[in-house]
Amino acid sequence: MADETPEVGAPDAPEEAAAEAETPVAEAEAPEAAVEAEPKPAEPAPEPEPELDPEIEARFARFEAGLGDGVIDHAESHGTLVVRVRPDAWKRAAEVARADLDCDYLSFIAGMDWMPAPKTPGDEGTDTSAPVQPDTMTFGVTGSKGRFQVFAHAQSTTKHWGITLKTDVDEAAPAVDSWVSVYPGADWHERECWEMYGIDFTGHPKIRPLYLPAEFEGNPLRKDFALIAREVKPWPGLVDVEPMPGDDTPEDEGAA
């Protein structure tokens, strides 16, 4: 897995561009009610890769100096430094963050499933209360090679900064190195991630379910794990997309 990482960065860019192209399509597919919401959020949208804050850039430089070619990509997302590292450098990234960035505090480790939740064909439109997510796979701010990622946030209690680290996880054999030896608090986070996404952490002293009973089957936070309650009965949140009485908005007239 490690040797293919150099070319990982390349396919990302087109994919991301494709993702941006996809989003309006998805919005167009949303119910008519969404039309009104369109203009507002469209304005701040195209700003993912502008100039970085100099402090964040300096922080990243420090991190990159420590980790070297383990870094794949980095970005600033709303004031947070997000760095995507190669899977084989995952544990070293934690060590570098702890040693070079003084990130002595582990905030969380979590999994991520970028695959859009599968939809049953013909189901569109019945449950308008559910948020309509895009159908294509897009990969957040620093991109991803595949469906699964593990991301974590470490912080410094002295320097008052933080870093979000991401790494790709192979879908066929989901496993990354454990952080327990760097941050003992990683123990529970990794157990949670393991049971929720089925991502194994090599080097974890004893990986076992945290929340779920032992006989539970499946990985609940994976997108293909259906939320049965929602399948059976749509959430009665329709009120949010219905016009308010006495509200003279375009869709009101459309409805009339």
């Binding site: 947070t80 308010m244 908005t249």
Partner: peptide, 22 residues
């Protein structure tokens, strides 16, 4: 704000000091 809240694509990490901690 628009009445239908649609949040543009992106990622954000927000942290606050709650009574019990971060």
């Amino acid at each position: 704000v628009p009445r239908i809240i649609k949040v543009p694509e992106g990622e954000v990490w927000v942290e606050v000091e709650n009574p019990l901690g971060q």
